[in-house]
């Protein structure tokens, strides 16, 4: 298949997937959900009050118009107003994005650099003692609840040792740094287990290929093989994994933000869940899904550029 035809097809496939996402969101929040007016007004609301609120929120309109509203919002990012704070949701998202990104971007980069360094070391000593310890360490680290890391980290480094700020946030360049240091540290530790395990598998997949044996046969040293040959080929799945994790940075770290009272999008989402704020939950679901869809298309297209075999499938 021609590269352009493939790209076009891949781009067109966005439409049915996006409509599907909107359908799921619609189904969850407008079909099977409990009556939101009941949640908002409490048990003692009169029928008339409920009717009025329904009209105010636009819940009395026919279902296909409500569905079309969701679809429209996926393109215009106009999600209406929050039920609890009455603010424009798009403004809330813009405000929340900055604290979220100041936490998630540096954490993402640092976490990647550390994990890839450790996995290269582990792959170099594959099958040896260090490798076995590292693999067992990764699995053990993944088995502990992320809540435990956050709670313990906050208590130990923030409270007991007093090295970091425990909670809060300041806007502006140098001011936010003390507040995000500890969350970043915990994020890096949380990511270490799964990431090292993944990159190790990717690297080992390449290490047992024929071209590595050839390289070794012609007398290349282990370092040259690992860094010049193996790493170059392993870059494809590594980069794919990196690009596809970007959309999740928008959500920030749901739990980290709420623990450290960082006013980002993750904390906003959790607050919305606690307040039964449907429009905000819907908006965040659609926003992250759109980001995911866009980035998965980018990944697929990059993939075909690098590896033409994919196109033929």
């Amino acid at each position: 298949m021609n590269l352009y035809v493939y790209t076009l097809r891949r781009l067109l496939y966005i439409i049915p997937v996006l409509l599907g996402v909107c359908a799921i969101v619609f189904f969850l929040f407008s079909v099977v959900s409990p009556d939101p007016t009941l949640i908002m007004l409490g048990k003692h609301a009169s029928v008339q009050q409920m009717e009025e609120l329904r009209r105010e929120l636009g819940l009395d309109r026919p279902w296909f118009i409500q569905y079309l509203d969701i679809v429209k919002s996926a393109f215009t990012f106009d999600f209406g107003r929050s039920w609890s704070t009455k603010q424009e949701i798009s403004t809330m998202i813009k405000q929340g994005a900055i604290p979220s990104l100041t936490l998630s971007l540096p954490a993402f980069v640092i976490s990647f650099v550390i994990s890839i360094t450790v996995s290269l070391m582990v792959a170099f000593y594959r099958g040896k003692f260090l490798d076995k310890i590292a693999v067992f360490g990764c699995v053990s680290m993944m088995s502990i609840s992320s809540l435990a890391y956050i709670l313990f980290g906050q208590w130990f480094f923030g409270y007991k040792l007093g090295w970091f700020e425990i909670s809060g946030y300041d806007y502006g360049f140098p001011d936010f740094i003390p507040y995000v240091l500890l969350p970043i540290l915990i994020w890096v530790i949380l990511g270490l287990g799964p990431e090292v395990r993944f990159y190790r598998t990717v690297l080992l997949d390449e290490i047992y290929q024929d071209y590595v044996r050839t390289a070794r046969a012609k007398g290349l040293g282990e370092h040259v093989i690992l860094f010049k040959h193996v790493l170059k080929n392993a870059l494809i799945p590594i980069i794919t994994n990196l690009i596809i994790s970007i959309p999740f940075l928008i959500l920030g770290a749901l739990l980290l933000e709420s623990f450290f009272s960082i006013p980002g999008l993750g904390a906003m989402t959790l607050n919305a869940v606690n307040a039964s704020d449907f429009p905000v939950i819907k908006a965040m679901t659609i926003l992250t899904s759109v980001a995911y869809i866009i980035f998965s298309v980018i990944t697929d297209i990059c993939y075909t550029l690098v590896d033409p075999r994919v196109r033929l499938r």
Partner: peptide
């Protein structure tokens, strides 16, 4: 395939929270 592509497009945590919340 369309159905599961759609499903994976929604971040798992959002879907989990939404379904749990809605089913009471």
């Amino acid at each position: 395939v369309w159905f599961y592509t759609t499903f994976t497009s929604i971040p798992n945590i959002m879907l989990l929270v939404a379904i749990t919340f809605i089913s009471g």
